[in-house]
């Protein structure tokens, strides 16, 4: 549990950070809260030549209400996100998911941007970013760039950030009135990663689902947006009825949620096989949509 040797660089400004990272290319890793990176180093699963610590770079931390969206700085800790009245009021799904991240100690060190830029399909926030159509704002020596959430999560632990690019923060759109939210996380112990998680944002009108956006945690090599189930849910009544289909009458919501795992390629590991993950995705999507619609 001792990392291999690396250089440690702590730039004092964003310009300096971009320059240092640009010079180092893909030899360098950015250190934010370190909650994912340091275990990788200590297990010697990652051997970066240099760590660029953004901890002293000003302007990357905090939550701002910007009218039609909320901007969350990349270095804002999970705990700060949870304590933000702006987050709770305007983008509650972010708060719901963040509250399930690991434990208080991790939430005090781990950062919103670091967690997203790690692009771990088992992380809780990527599914939320996908469901809410967030926009990632990044900067390099060549200037600033916006990346839609749908394009940000390229592959396993691979975000759409270039070497030398720093994530500044994320624009989280406010969905406005009529929307309901829920994050349904299934994990074996409180501190364990999600076996499967479902981030749901739904809008109910006249007793049926007008729109549903579903992001899935740990259902593929990258976090995924479950488009098939979103289509299937349109027009379905989420009203409680029956006993959830355990031998009772047919439940249209449960039928629609049967599409939740469509097109996914979930991993198989110690905690769940692929078929079990697909099953969980269906059950948890049902529960998430029910809760978000309530």
């Amino acid at each position: 549990m001792i990392p291999a040797a690396f250089d440690y660089i702590r730039p004092a400004s964003l310009d300096e950070a971009c320059r240092v990272l640009g010079d180092a290319g893909d030899e360098a890793k950015i250190l934010a809260g370190g909650q994912s990176l340091l275990p990788l180093l200590r297990l010697r699963l990652a051997y970066p030549a240099a760590l660029v610590d953004l901890g002293r770079v000003p302007g990357l931390r905090g939550v701002e209400d910007r009218g039609d969206h909320v901007f969350i700085g990349a270095l804002t800790t999970h705990d700060e996100v949870l304590r933000s009245a702006v987050v709770r009021e305007h983008v509650p799904l972010v708060a719901l998911a963040t509250a399930t991240v690991a434990d208080p100690a991790v939430r005090h060190r781990g950062t919103f941007g670091g967690s997203l830029a790690h692009a771990d399909p088992a992380g809780d926030l990527p599914a939320v970013a996908l469901a809410l159509d967030c926009v990632f704002v990044a900067r390099s020596g060549e200037g600033e760039r916006e990346i839609p959430a749908a394009e940000f999560f390229v592959d396993y632990l691979e975000p759409a950030l270039h070497p030398g690019e720093v994530l500044l923060g994320v624009r989280v759109p406010k969905l406005g009135a009529g929307w309901g939210f829920h994050y349904e996380k299934f994990h074996r112990t409180a501190q364990a990663w999600a076996v499967v998680g479902v981030a749901a944002a739904v809008r109910v009108e006249g007793g049926s689902l007008e729109e549903a956006r579903i992001g899935l945690t740990n259902m593929g090599p990258a976090p995924v947006r479950a488009r098939a189930v979103e289509t299937a849910l349109r027009g379905v009544a989420p009203a409680p009825g029956g006993n959830g289909g355990a031998g009772g009458s047919r439940d249209p919501l449960r039928d629609a949620c049967g599409e939740a795992a469509e097109g996914t390629a979930p991993p198989a590991d110690l905690h769940a096989g692929q078929d079990y993950r697909r099953h969980l995705a269906r059950v948890l999507t049902y529960r998430a949509v029910r809760a978000a619609s309530a």
Binding site: D103, T189, A190, Q191, W193, L270
Partner: peptide, 16 residues
Amino acid sequence: LLTTTMADYLIPSAAD
């Protein structure tokens, strides 16, 4: 051995 870390070998805490 596949359960070499506490992410794989799950020990319940008070929360569980």
